[in-house]
Design a protein around this nucleic acid. Structure first.
Ligand SMILES: NC(=O)c1ccc[n+]([C@@H]2O[C@H](COP(=O)([O-])OP(=O)(O)OC[C@H]3O[C@@H](n4cnc5c(N)ncnc54)[C@H](O)[C@@H]3O)[C@@H](O)[C@H]2O)c1
Ligand SMILES: NC(=O)c1ccc[n+]([C@@H]2O[C@H](COP(=O)([O-])OP(=O)(O)OC[C@H]3O[C@@H](n4cnc5c(N)ncnc54)[C@H](O)[C@@H]3O)[C@@H](O)[C@H]2O)c1
Lengths: 210, 210
DNA sequence: AATTTCTTGTGAAATTTTTCACGAACGCTT
DNA sequence: AAGCGTTCGTGAAAAATTTCACAAGAAATT
């Protein structure tokens, strides 16, 4: 699970590193060259000590009395996260949600490219304004192996999500971003991140009423 | 922040309660009346002791030697989460993603209803197959107050997300489900849950390569 | 070049969250 | 109704995460 020869970096830290990276990108856009832990932490919505602790897990990049070089720190975090190179991703389930994701132009900028989409009824999606090919499920295993794809976005109906996930895993997929509102069962070495909007709403609802 | 007169329930527990609720719903559909902490925990992807500890925060619902009554436990969790009644939600930003969310029929079942959508250019969305009205932004404050809406889904471009969030907050919104890839600044008593797909992908990518 | 001012890096402390271990309670069987 | 097997509830222990406090390093200033 760990990355460098050093320490195991906590899960939550990894998540925050992604946030820092995006805040740094914004600073760079605004022509800002140097940033203190206080300023960056504020932009990211965390405490300065937490930011510094997070960075300390994999190196020391700051200059005392001055702060961090925006470009350099970006580079170091991207390196640590392994986002330096573009990653191929596939999407399975070209319905309402899948189409929205396919037409989103924001992933490339962040290091990911949805290179193809798959659906049980690929023909239906012909007329849409998306650039990716929509391919039938029977070609899924071959495609994954040929293009050495390791990550998939799963946006099929809940009823078939486990079945589809099984065939993704069988074909070599190691990470699944799952939108179906069910808990997927996968081998230990396969990672699933769930996006469950109903749960997010429920969570909001609890804390604003409490 | 706390709910009953009892204890402060951890954030993560609240999140897991939502998951348990969905697993229980599935069990009920399958005609299962009783479930052990072991079985339910497995379905939810957690350890049995964690499930029991989570429930212990707000009561004792099980029968020793037997397990939990599926219907009763569902009811208790829903009650604790405050999901017993249907909650009105609005959506702002009827673009690719917003449209997909509006046409999703899965929220009602989970206790939420998107009662209206707002967009800077409401006319453009006329022809779509959604049942909710798409309204101009100028009517937003009045609508929120009149319908006493407390939660909003924000799916506008990142560049305007903070501005729109400000006016949501000003109008009385207390919880925002934010899809724009920026960190929103809001008053302390307003809660924001972020859904950032690029970060989820980055996270997956880190852990499958590490 | 000495001093002041600022900000990092980090061991230790505090807090939060998870896991463990086991007594207690209940149903079922005999 | 006694005994057996199961499974819950929970205080205590362990692990993970966050926060604190401050020494140390670097730039800016005098
Ligand atoms: N649309 C949303 O806003 C939204 C929100 C939250 C969660 N979700 C979840 O995301 C998933 C997709 O939602 P949606 O609204 O896009 O649904 P949808 O019905 O519009 O699309 C599902 C797509 O999956 C395809 N499909 C069906 N079975 C398949 C199979 N076995 N293999 C490959 N493809 C198959 C269908 O042809 C269809 O194109 C669902 O699980 C849903 O619960 C959607
Ligand atoms: N589409 C996706 O799959 C996807 C994925 C991840 C993140 N996001 C994020 O979600 C947000 C929406 O994405 P999208 O693809 O739907 O974008 P989009 O451009 O298709 O839609 C944005 C909508 O917001 C409206 N809008 C613009 N300014 C507004 C304002 N000031 N007030 C009200 N409405 C306004 C536009 O008219 C448009 O209808 C973006 O922040 C994007 O980064 C989208």
């Amino acid at each position: 699970m760990k990355k460098t020869g050093r320490l195991v970096i906590p899960r939550k830290t990894i998540y925050r590193l992604s946030i820092y990276l995006r805040c740094l990108a914004r600073l760079k856009e605004n022509g800002i060259g140097t940033v203190s832990s206080e300023a960056l932490a504020k932009a990211a919505g965390v405490k300065p000590t937490q930011l510094r602790k997070d960075l300390a897990y994999f190196g020391t990049f700051g200059t005392r009395g001055l702060g961090y070089d925006v470009t350099e720190l970006s580079k170091k975090i991207a390196e640590e996260l392994g986002t330096s190179s573009l990653q191929p991703v596939i999407l399975v389930g070209v319905g309402n949600l899948g189409l929205a994701l396919l037409s989103y132009r924001g992933f490339e900028k962040e290091g990911f490219e949805i290179i193809a989409a798959f659906d049980a009824e690929p023909r239906r999606q012909r007329d849409k304004k998306i650039k990716q090919p929509v391919i039938g499920m029977e070609q899924l295993p071959e495609f994954i192996r040929e293009h050495n794809v390791k990550m998939a976005i799963l946006s099929v109906p809940a009823a078939v999500a486990q079945t589809v996930a099984n065939s993704l895993v069988e074909s070599g997929i190691m990470g699944i971003l799952n939108f179906a509102p069910i808990v997927l069962t996968v081998p230990e070495d396969v990672m699933v991140n769930n996006v469950n909007l109903a749960i997010e709403l429920e969570n909001l609802s609890y804390f604003i009423q409490g």
